[in-house]
Write a protein that binds this DNA or RNA. Structure first.
Length: 557
RNA sequence: GCGCUCGUAGCUCAAUUGGAUAGAGCGCAGCCCUGCGGAGGCUGAGGUCGCGGGUUCAAAUCCCGCCGAGCGCACCA
């Protein structure tokens, strides 16, 4: 992969600015970071730099005058055809047509790696998401975090980082215990006897089914034991069942993990004790009211948090602190967590805990995604696991399909409060942007098939014939993908990808409308070969886009 | 009450993180097929960027205050 053109332009502008300072045309002093933008108005060229505007104040000069002095000092660059200064102080760059045409070759050559970035500062990045208690099926709200996490992971990997996706299994906490007791009660009931559900138990129907399944699979062997022992045994069985269910549900929406990390192992490995000792040694522990507290107020928090209950049981916060410390001990440079908004209160204390154990909290980024408000027609649907009123992730995927789900959830930034109208989601299927993008891919595949059927060999096609605005526009659009991958990875914002995919599809459809690709006229043979080459490049770009989003790229629809 | 997040076209959402005339999809009104997939292309209408102040060459974006929405504020996770 070569350096992105926008970086080369930034370097050129930097050199020009330094040269201007040497000549005294610009006052000496530190230069701000040079940002290269993509102007939205095509009349402003392909790239734009607003450095003169940013410099105007410190230099006490008219920004337009700065731009006019800078422009002639720019070193030559073969990819750039024209540099223009524009009011109130922009420097605009237009790329050379020959360079654009040659990129078609470069894209085909890059193939499935097109859009990937080579980088020197490759980071080891840990990304944890979903991590739902294994006490029930995933619901729609979880789908958003799941898609976001997996999409972000793909983008970070494409941006050249080493990424590990992890699911943290809360198999040690009180919720798991309540679940086990609920399951035990349903199991006993399935045997025809009476048994009381625990306080705040999991009353969802799936637990009843699970109880029956347990009877069918294991008979009444747990009924003979003492209750405590039976609950323990049933808990293990239930945990495995739920994990399997969760894993399959996630797979259905195209989400997989590299590591499934058990909360219990945090205790068994000694990492929990070690972390607590560390906190104690650093003076962050306080005994009060029979419990052990993390003195987060020492770090500017508005309240302390319980680590060990007066019953002696550690809280979720305690094991999570040890778990997160462990991530960094495993050698990750950065950790990214994706939380639902209902866990946002956990963020400040977790960061404070990292600081307390001697880890720079800025190495931990927590993305909080707002919950999905469900609607059925006009009415709000309340999704809650314990009350049993669930719209499951599985139901959603079955209804809408994994591609549409992924596209939809990826489209919006995490912090947006989105409404999901289930009735609308089904209805929309024909006019969905998802199909629009996939249709473009199918159309491309169809054209390439035709080319093959006609026995055309386009690898030697002459790209210099590609001069139609629609052709050049398509190439321009394709070239934005690597830039986009870079910004999305920097800002941790996957939501630009679906929009880009639509733009790319539009650019292709327009080209298709404007330019006949496969012609039977012998005189147009050279043009046919060149355009087939362009179509192949389009396939590369669009397929990569779909792959990054975790969507299928159909050959036919 | 306090904290976090959000408020942009009729609807669902963008806006290159302070830049040039605020853009897409759906919906609405039109137009385009005797050759490669019409699940397509093109044009148009539609905006007090929640409201009010402030910061500066420049604000949807930053600051302050209101209004409204979601989520938190446990010895749950």
């Amino acid at each position: 992969m070569t350096t992105l053109l926008k970086h080369r332009i930034a370097a050129l502008v930097g050199q020009a600015a330094e040269e201007a300072q040497r000549q005294g045309a610009l006052p000496a002093g530190p230069l701000p970071e040079i940002e290269v933008e993509r102007p939205q108005n095509p009349e402003h060229g392909d790239f734009a730099v607003s450095l003169p505007l940013k410099l105007a104040r410190v230099a006490r000069m008219n920004p337009l005058a700065i731009a006019q002095r800078l422009a002639p000092l720019l070193p030559p660059e073969e990819a750039i055809a024209e540099v223009k200064v524009a009011a109130p102080g922009f420097i605009n760059f237009t790329v050379r047509q020959e360079w654009l045409q040659w990129q078609v070759e470069a894209i085909i050559k890059a193939g499935e790696h097109f859009g990937s970035l080579a980088r020197e500062n490759r980071e080891r990045i840990h990304i944890e998401f979903v991590s739902v208690n294994p006490t029930g099926p995933l619901h729609v709200g979880h789908a958003r975090g799941a898609v976001l996490g997996s999409g972000l992971a793909s983008i970070l990997a494409a941006a050249g980082h080493q990424v590990s996706k992890e699911y943290y299994i809360n198999d040690a906490g009180t919720q798991m215990q309540v679940f086990a007791r609920s399951l035990y009660a349903r199991y006993v009931q399935a045997l025809g006897r009476s048994s009381e559900m625990p306080e705040n138990g999991y009353v969802g129907e799936y637990v009843i089914d699970l109880g029956k399944e347990l009877v069918a699979e294991q008979g009444d062997r747990f009924a003979g034991m003492g209750e405590a022992e039976a609950v323990e045994a049933v808990r293990e069985w239930g945990l495995q069942k739920m994990l399997e269910l969760i894993r399959l549900d996630l797979e259905a929406i195209g989400v997989t993990f590299d590591v499934w990390f058990s909360e219990r192992s945090v205790f068994e490995s000694g990492q929990y004790t070690e972390t607590m000792e560390l906190l104690r040694a650093k003076g962050y522990l306080a005994q009060r009211e029979g419990a052990t507290w993390f003195a987060s107020t020492m770090l500017g928090e508005d309240k302390d948090n319980v680590l060990v209950r007066s019953t002696g049981e550690p809280t979720y916060f305690a094991s999570d602190t040890a778990y997160h410390r462990g991530k960094f001990l495993r050698g990750f440079d950065r950790c990214i967590d994706i939380f639902g908004a209902d866990h946002q209160g956990h963020v400040p204390r977790l960061k404070a805990a990292m600081e307390a154990v001697g880890i720079d909290p800025s190495r931990l980024t927590v993305l909080v995604n707002q919950l999905v408000a469900l609607k059925q027609g006009g009415d709000a649907v309340r999704a809650s696991k314990r009350t049993g009123n669930i719209v499951t992730l599985r139901e959603l995927v079955d209804e809408v399909g994994p591609d549409a789900c992924r596209f939809f959830f990826l489209s919006r930034p995490p912090e947006s409060q989105m409404e999901f109208d289930l009735a609308l989601a089904k209805e929309e299927s024909a006019d969905n942007p998802v199909y629009y993008v996939q249709y473009a891919h199918a159309r491309i595949a169809s054209i390439l098939r035709l080319g093959q059927e006609r026995g055309l060999e386009w690898s030697g096609g002459d790209v210099s014939l590609l001069g139609d605005p629609a052709e050049l526009g398509l190439i321009r659009k394709m070239l934005q993908l690597p830039e986009l991958v870079e910004t999305m990875a920097e800002r941790l914002e996957p939501h630009h990808l679906p929009r880009y995919a639509q733009d790319l599809a539009t650019a292709f459809h327009w080209f298709y409308q404007q330019c006949r690709v496969v012609s039977s006229e012998p005189s147009e043979r050279a043009m046919t070969l060149a355009r087939l080459k362009l179509v192949e490049a389009s396939r590369v770009a669009l397929a990569r886009c779909l792959e990054l989003m975790g969507m299928s790229a159909p050959e036919r629809m």
